[in-house]
Design a binder for these strands. Structure first.
Lengths: 187, 187
DNA sequence: TTATATGTAGACAGACCTGTCTACTTACAG
DNA sequence: CTGTAAGTAGACAGGTCTGTCTACATATAA
């Protein structure tokens, strides 16, 4: 969906979209505090007035980043689980698909929580919502008897643990093997 | 063990120790980037020259912080597991002991990795070592047939997942219940 | 006594950061 | 045409940050 300004003429994303996409890339890759707004502005090719017109403060951009990330990650997660068979054994190939990406840097929500959780209680809330929604996807797609609330919660633990481990281990194979072992124990 | 300077006369920790303890507290509570060296210096009651005499850069202090944390956390973890019976069911009360602390703010290593992992590869290495040592403790203390390498790795996943969840959930009970459920599935 | 280690107070430099502002241009709707 | 929205270039303010430096004091060992 393109906005109605310049982008409809030349297929150039709107200034707001460029800001959001650039922030998403840089915040995820380098960290939120490590990324100054001037860098985002430069790479998005807008001016500071435009930046502040769309996002009244850096905090507004951070929230927009996390909401964008939430929506897009959950869509990918859901689609990927379905693509890989839509049952519990899909979990490993889905995580493999993610962990093996060149730009994998863990979970944006865990990272933001670690970085900013003490001073931004809304980030704690955003993270909680994200994780609950992830567990809901697991429940809906992978666990057909819907009474398995507890199992979905355990799977959520395993997913979060795997994400963290994948962030510090050199090779995702050992992590994926542990997920596989865990899934086998749960079946 | 006290150093041989002023502290042996008046039971005042040395300047270095005050810096390290203050940094430990503030880095863990507020985040590493969020904590400027001037705040550490003020609260440790030293001067800037003293700070730089002991730690040639902020990065040196960060490494010292993580090494201090590694040693003290692992000692606590090991002792607590033993205190709670030294078998797999000890895991939940040990994590409860930690998560219920007023100043609980997740895992210092995960937090540092999230915050600084992109620009400090040594932090990735430090985190990896920490987590491997944690899994070794689990293997040594909780799993008597020492062939259970895979199980220890799975437990490590569950522990990391629980730590993350405990950081964003309001109440640790649900998290601890999930750990309990997982442990039961593993036995 | 001298030399060394460790500590003090505090000023300073330069970089980076977030946010405010001026003056102007272009596109579009009515 | 006018008014509005959205964009431009870029300067500026004030704050925070890390690290460098001067000048001095105290404790200890030889």
């Amino acid at each position: 969906m393109k906005s109605l300004n310049a982008s409809s003429k030349k297929d150039v994303p709107s200034a707001r979209e460029r800001l959001l996409l650039t922030a998403h890339r840089l915040f995820y890759q380098d960290g939120i505090r490590a990324t100054g707004i001037d860098k985002i502005i430069l790479e998005a090719q807008v001016t500071k007035v435009t930046f502040y017109r769309h996002f009244p403060s850096k905090n507004d951009l951070i929230r927009a980043y996390l909401e964008y990330r939430h929506e897009h990650w959950l869509t990918w997660f859901s689609d990927s689980l379905t693509r890989h068979g839509g049952n519990l054994t899909a979990l490993v190939p889905v995580l493999a698909e993610w962990f093996e990406q060149e730009d994998f840097r863990g979970c944006a929500f865990i990272n933001s929580l670690s970085e900013l959780g003490s001073e931004h209680p809304d980030i704690v809330e955003i993270t909680r919502r994200h994780k609950h929604d992830m567990i809901d996807v697991v429940k809906r797609l992978l666990l057909k008897p819907s009474k398995q609330e507890q199992l979905a919660e355990v799977i959520g633990l395993i997913v979060d643990g795997a994400i963290v481990r994948a962030q510090y281990e050199r090779d995702p194979c050992n992590t994926l093997q542990s997920v596989q072992n865990a899934v086998e124990k749960l079946l």
